[in-house]
């Protein structure tokens, strides 16, 4: 039980740090790092839930695998967009990306 609480608190802290980073950074790559940290916190929670609440249901572990996939996809697409933007504008500073507004 105590490990579950420890893991949930760690997950919450990672999520908080990631949220701060994603909101405060101006650079695309740094924003992505914040998102990765948030996903990391989510993964800690998922593994803790699997281990301490339902160790016989393996869908919990599959969920973690899916989150890992999401992290990889976020990186791939983010860097694709970043490369295209760097080619066009010479920077990936998100404050200058006002024309992306609808």
């Amino acid at each position: 039980m105590i490990t579950l609480l420890v893991a949930l608190i760690i997950g919450a802290l990672l999520f908080g740090i990631g949220l701060y980073g994603a909101l405060s950074q101006t650079n695309l790559v740094m924003i992505m790092m914040g998102v990765e940290l948030m996903l990391g916190g989510a993964m800690v929670n998922l593994v803790a839930f699997w281990r301490f609440l339902h160790p016989e249901v393996y869908a919990g572990q599959v969920f973690v695998l899916v989150v890992m996939t999401v992290m990889a996809l976020e990186m791939a697409v983010g860097f694709g967009v970043g490369t295209a933007r760097f080619r066009a504008r010479g920077s990936v500073e998100m404050e200058e990306a006002r024309e992306l507004k609808g």
């Binding site: 919450a12 999520f15 908080g16 949220l19 701060y20």
Partner: peptide, 10 residues
Amino acid sequence: AGVLGALVAI
């Protein structure tokens, strides 16, 4: 936002 998010989750 970060502190609030972490506190709510905790």
